[in-house]
Amino acid sequence: MKISIATWNINSVRLREPTVLRFLEERQPDILCLQEIKCQNDQFPMKNFKALGYEHIEVAGMKAYHGAATISKLPLERLPTSFCPLDHARHVSTRVVADASRGDAGDFELHNFYIPAGGDVADREVNDKFGHKLDFIETMRAYFAERFALGDQHQVLVGDFNIAPHEHDVWSHKQLLKVVSHTPLEVGILEDLRQSHDFTDTARLFRDDDEKLYSWWSYRAKDVMASNRGRRLDHIWVSPALRPAAEATGRDGFTIHTDMRVWEKPSDHVPVVQVLDLGAL
């Protein structure tokens, strides 16, 4: 069984609902994880998503800010998780029932994150927002240490991590070394989280670091694709138990939908998709 998981910082789901619906109709992911939905739970536009077959929807909303939602063709079971030290709506955690015929063997945990951006100064002593970002990632580390200790090995982490870790995940490594999202401190902490449980960053599974990969481009660019000053802030990670499912779909199993950055009324992020072949497990 193959399933496709998409992650997308939509920058207001109500403003860009037509764009999301177009993406679902044209690209047909099985699961779509949205961040920065910027609405409360009862304001989330469920009706049209359900009409397209996405009947399973879990939302963590917040008035005007932040927020995350996971919409799925597959059954979802909400998990009682807490990651944000400030109690902002920045994550949705679910168990995905991917293949009922296989019992629990087809299930996995899916964690949809909107990690804080961190403000403008990479120093928690003078910038509370940066400290919040580091604390959020530390809470993630503690959570997954507990889950793996309990034997929950099938984990998928997706979302806007607000960190571009590799040299060619940003348009200019040298010019952005002191810019929040690519500072050595952030990159190191995110890498420590990834390595702590040997998560695989699926974007780089079949792509060397000399290949430029971006998923975000600033609204300030006059001709965004001509200048191409992007960053790869959006990620999909899989735990070691699920790595064979990502490997089985090959290089084409991972896609960044760059073309959508110039759609009408675009988000500054584009969807990132990973196909998993659960039959390879």
Rank of each mutant, 00 (worst) to 15 (best):
H257T: 03
N41C: 15
M46Q: 14
K63A: 11
V13G: 08
G250S: 06
D252N: 13
E77Y: 08
I163A: 04
M62N: 14
R207L: 03
L150S: 08
D160Y: 05
G119C: 00
L176N: 06
E25G: 08
P184A: 11
A246V: 06
P29E: 11
P80F: 11
Y114F: 05
W237A: 09
C33S: 11
E146V: 08
A145T: 14
E109V: 14
D268C: 07
R14Y: 01
V158Q: 02
N112I: 01
T255G: 10
E36C: 09
F130L: 01
L281S: 07
I31K: 02
H66G: 03
W263Y: 09
A226K: 15
M140D: 00
P165E: 03
A105R: 13
D192E: 15
V275P: 00
G253S: 04
N11L: 11
T258S: 15
Q153C: 05
R78Q: 13
I163R: 01
S215Y: 03
P29W: 04
R229G: 06
R124A: 14
W171G: 01
D192K: 15
E55H: 12
M46I: 14
F148L: 10
F136R: 03
A122N: 06
L276Y: 00
S215T: 02
R147L: 07
T81Y: 11
H56L: 02
D99L: 02
P18W: 02
A69R: 09
I189C: 13
P240D: 13
D234W: 05
R27F: 13
P244M: 08
L79E: 10
Q195R: 15
M46R: 14
V270I: 14
N127H: 04
V273M: 11
I37E: 10
K63D: 13
M1H: 05
E146D: 13
V238P: 05
Q40V: 15
L242R: 06
A68G: 11
W237D: 09
F108R: 02
F23R: 03
H173G: 01
D208M: 02
E146W: 03
R147T: 09
V187A: 06
G131V: 06
A149I: 06
D104N: 13
F148S: 09
L193C: 09
L190M: 14
V13M: 09
W237P: 05
D208A: 12
W171N: 04
R95N: 05
A51Y: 07
D268L: 10
N228A: 15
F199W: 08
S239E: 10
Y219I: 14
P85M: 12
A100H: 11
F113M: 11
L134H: 03
K178I: 00
R27L: 12
V170A: 01
V20F: 07
I256R: 05
F130N: 03
R251K: 14
P45I: 00
E58N: 12
V59C: 12
G151F: 06
I256H: 04
H269K: 08
R231Q: 14
H166W: 04
E186Q: 13
G279C: 05
V121C: 01
E186I: 03
R261F: 03
S196V: 08
R220D: 08
E17A: 04
L79K: 06
